[in-house]
């Protein structure tokens, strides 16, 4: 959705991930970019160059925080130190919303540093939604959750991934960062129709969209973020925008990173769809969308 309570009523356009190889270009050339997404964990430190660069970027650009290790779906409790540092960073960046993944990745205080798929069970719905609410209350900023790419499914699952996502966000009353590349990757790995997924997501909760490239192997697809966006992903993006109207969009490019201009040009291709999109979404917004940010 263009501006809603899940993205702090902002109307951001097309951004790219802030990546180290581009620091110099951005700081010296000061290119016009709608917004940057930063990886929170890279700046949850006490000092040094990363924070110096971040402060310079914050002076000139809109910045949104994206985390990779909150693990809303982990059964064990989150690390209080992690939350404390994250909140400190939120104060620094004044991010209008904050995203992390609908996954798990740590157990008993041990971290895999991966985004591991959830079992789609009712117990997991409850654990995950409770965690999201807890984090959102603590951070005092809208929290949105991102669907991940996955390579495995569990026997114990009691629903589809999109049903699970919908249950979680309803119970947590949070927004969604819809990664259409991840939907495509998972659809190929698990054999479902990605359009069914996209069409099932509640548009009024979509705060942001991710687009990215992936790599195709013989028996599965890997979410590699080292390519331009592929056509089937653009098609899913087009369908999403058709449903939501123009929505903050971000290109992720994390490996074999080309020049800033090349990455930015790839992201700006999203404008083809955004500019053509009708402003009001095809589905009527629910009344609670007009309420203030849930706390």
């Amino acid at each position: 959705m263009p501006a809603n309570r899940f993205n702090g009523y902002t109307d951001y356009g097309v951004g790219i991930g802030l990546r180290i190889p581009h620091y110099r270009h951005i700081l010296t050339k000061k290119p016009v970019v709608d917004w940057f997404e930063i990886i929170s964990e890279n700046y949850m430190i006490d000092g040094g160059r990363p924070l110096e660069v971040l402060d310079k970027i914050l002076d000139q650009y809109k910045v949104v925080q994206h985390g990779v290790s909150m693990y809303f779906g982990s059964a064990s409790d989150p690390d209080p130190e992690h939350l404390r540092r994250l909140k400190q960073l939120v104060k620094r960046t004044r991010t209008p919303w904050l995203s992390d993944h609908l996954c798990w990745g740590s157990v008993d205080g041990r971290y895999t540093h991966d985004l591991l798929p959830m079992p789609y069970t009712w117990e997991a719905v409850k654990v995950t939604a409770d965690r999201i609410r807890h984090v959102q209350d603590f951070l005092e900023v809208p929290v949105v959750v991102e669907n991940v790419s996955s390579y495995a499914e569990y026997h114990v699952s009691e629903m589809t991934e999109w049903e699970f996502l919908n249950e979680v966000v309803e119970r947590a009353d949070c927004g969604i960062l819809l990664d259409v590349n991840n939907i495509y990757v998972s659809s190929q790995n698990h054999g479902f129709d990605p359009f069914v997924y996209v069409n099932a997501v509640p548009t009024q909760r979509i705060a942001q969209i991710h687009i990215a490239g992936h790599s195709k192997f013989e028996k599965y697809i890997l979410d590699t973020h080292d390519h331009p966006v592929l056509d089937p992903v653009w098609e899913l993006y087009a369908r999403t925008i058709e449903r939501t109207g123009p929505t903050a969009t971000l290109l992720e490019w994390d490996d074999k990173i080309p020049s800033f201009d090349e990455v930015h040009a790839e992201a700006l291709k999203a404008n083809r769809f955004l500019q053509g999109a009708a402003q009001p979404p095809s589905e009527p917004a629910k009344s609670h969308e007009l309420e203030g940010v849930a706390r």
Binding site: V68, H113, L115, S149, L222, T224, H225, D254, D255
Partner: peptide, 14 residues
């Protein structure tokens, strides 16, 4: 970095 939505993330840049 070897693949993934967090392929290069969660790693202290630089």
């Amino acid at each position: 970095c070897k693949a993934g939505d967090n392929g290069c993330k969660g790693k202290n840049s630089c």
